[in-house]
Amino acid sequence: MKNIISYDNVEIKYGDNIAVTDISFGVGKGEILGIVGESGSGKSTIIKAAMGLLGEGGTVSGGDILYNNRSLLNVSKKERLNINGPELGMIFQFAGSSFCPVRKIGTQLYEVVKAHKDISKEEFHSQVNELLDKLGFEDTVRILESYPNELSGGMQQRVGIVAAMLLNPKVLLADEPTSAMDVTIQKQAVEEMLKVRDVFGTSIILVTHNIGVVNAMADNLLVLRHGHIVEMGKTDDVINNPSEDYTKKLMEAVPRIKVSN
């Protein structure tokens, strides 16, 4: 299968410190790749590099990141606007805090779309209603008329997923999207993201420390440690038959619920 986004021997530095090195993988259309690792393993850094969000001092010092055979490195600010959003969408850990607290959700979502394409309010409304419908939201009017703090944390996060999907990106980059959630809401969010993939054929790169979430979502799994890839393969294989010691140790440490004796 042709890869829509691929990393080729990528090395990323913060100042003089190497954060990740030798990162190579590819994600095909409609595929979900999970990247797991413990804190400090560099997992967030990997997806931030694709979005150009490494921040001050962070640089891709080796290799290349390709999106549809086009390099995502050294992209001008103007081109970035056409990539981040319409091509690559991003979901953050705390979506609630990425909304402005004093303006209604609907207005803010409209601005997101408006920044990228010329669209009337009516067109926007029919589009957003359709999207909310497809993703299984109820009382869409209430959500759009709410201020961010009037929605629960879980609902804010789900709206964050909607915001990322409004521009119908080909790839969704999710940085710990469910880590601040209670389990029941986490399950909803996971189902939402799976629906996004099924309905729109979006590819997803999912960064998380939660093995349960990748198990439920990812087709392929990449295990990261200290900035190196430890193991990569089909999710089932990696979780149930890890070949590396570290992966074994990691998987053993994950508490699993026993449903029967």
Binding site: V183, T184, Q186, K187, V190, N210, G212, V213, N215, A216, I257, K258, V259, S260, N261
Partner: peptide, 21 residues
């Protein structure tokens, strides 16, 4: 602990446990 997590009688507990991925 095992009794409740494996054979809960309450709907809420069942839902909670079913949500664990």
């Amino acid at each position: 602990a095992n009794e409740i997590i494996m054979n809960s009688k309450e709907d809420y507990t069942k839902k909670l446990i079913a949500s664990v991925l």
